[in-house]
């Protein structure tokens, strides 16, 4: 028996996911432009692995395959994995990460809509703990051509030393730390001077800042399409800016500028595409602000004081844990119960 309403807006999970994928395209385009087409190969590998893993799990769980394979949610996870993993990660690393995300973090928790953790970020954390070296090899912009990238993705032998190893975030921190520890010898070396190096662009990493701009554009489009709200990106960027600005203002020689933090690493991807995952994120307006601000502070702390190149993934997972209580405690007053 069908009850009212008898009419529905033409909306679907599939169309939501499709718009998220489309919004990633500008960032991906910049990625290809600056870092080569290897990322496209990674996107394909991750997508295939995600669909295969999802199909197998749906078959085992006895769920309708056609319905859930076409919702595109697995593809979104796959793309986020490919975009956060190093573009020259070996194919099996991408496959393993994607399968972990789809099979364990998503399907074992009950599939679409049921996962308490962001699948892509959980996969990132697992893989960086398991394969710290492979997960930390980031080529600089224009360093490797497509063939070299393919060789690294599918080839057996990796000459790790031949590939430059660190992201701009990583490079900056390492240099600043050594500067602090060997203060007497390297006095006068400042964050701003470091950033004149070849790995850096105007704001963040060379090339990376343009990719971030692409994500920003896509993200703004998602807000305009009302797929996401402004709360999470604004709170994340705002809190990251303020936190980084505070420390930078106190000791500019030891800490990077707030703009550098916003333009580097996964900040934009995190603000618009990762933290905004509705399933694992906060849902109330106030909750979203708290959730994203908390993630920003954690990201900064991990970036500045932790051992990993970027902090978005761990910050996301840590905040995912808090989502139930954040949502519960930030329910807005309902009609007629507001205090004006």
């Amino acid at each position: 028996m069908i009850n009212s309403p008898y009419i529905r807006k033409p909306a679907s999970v599939q169309s939501v996911m499709l718009q998220v994928l489309l919004a990633l395209v500008p960032g991906i385009a910049a990625y290809v432009w600056f870092f080569g087409a290897g990322i496209l190969v990674q996107l394909a590998i991750a997508s295939l692995a995600a669909v295969a893993g999802e199909a197998a799990m749906l078959a085992i769980r006895g769920k309708p395959k056609a319905l859930f394979l076409t919702d595109l949610s697995a593809i979104v996870t796959a793309w986020l994995i490919a975009l956060t993993f190093p573009p020259i990660a070996p194919w099996w690393l991408t496959v393993t990460g994607t399968l972990l995300a789809v099979v364990i973090v998503k399907q074992l928790y009950g599939g679409l809509g049921q996962n308490p953790f962001n699948p892509a970020m959980a996969a990132f954390c697992l893989m960086i703990v398991a394969y710290p070296a492979l997960m930390s090899q980031w080529p600089a912009a224009g360093q490797l051509d497509f063939k070299a990238q393919l060789d690294l993705i599918f080839g057996g032998v990796r000459q790790v030393d031949a590939i430059t190893g660190a992201t701009p975030l990583d490079a900056l921190r390492t240099a600043l730390r050594s500067a602090v520890s060997a203060d007497s010898e390297l006095h006068g070396l400042r964050a701003s001077q470091l950033m004149d190096g070849p790995a850096f662009g105007a704001l963040g990493g060379k090339g990376g800042e343009w990719v971030a701009l692409g994500y920003l554009l896509g993200g703004l489009w998602l807000i305009q399409r009302r797929i996401i709200t402004w709360h999470i990106p604004a709170a994340f960027c705002g809190a990251l800016f303020v936190t980084a600005g505070l420390l930078w203002g106190l000791r500019p020689e030891s800490f990077a500028s707030p703009l550098f933090h916003l333009a580097s690493g996964g900040a934009m991807l995190g603000a618009f595409f990762i933290l905004t995952d509705p399933v694992s994120g906060a849902t109330t307006a106030r909750g979203k602000l708290l959730f994203a601000a908390g993630a920003a502070v954690l990201t900064y702390v991990i970036r500045a004081f932790g051992a990993y190149p970027d902090g978005i993934a761990f910050a996301t997972l840590l905040m995912n844990i808090l989502v139930p209580i954040i949502d519960m405690k930030t329910q807005a007053p309902v009609f007629g119960h507001k205090k004006d």
């Binding site: 069908i2 529905r8 939501v16 599939g111 679409l112 809509g113 509705p278």
Partner: peptide
């Protein structure tokens, strides 16, 4: 009739 029911993704619509 409405399309098949999917799980809630907490999108908040």
């Amino acid at each position: 009739p409405p399309p098949p029911e999917m799980p809630c993704i907490r999108c908040g619509e």
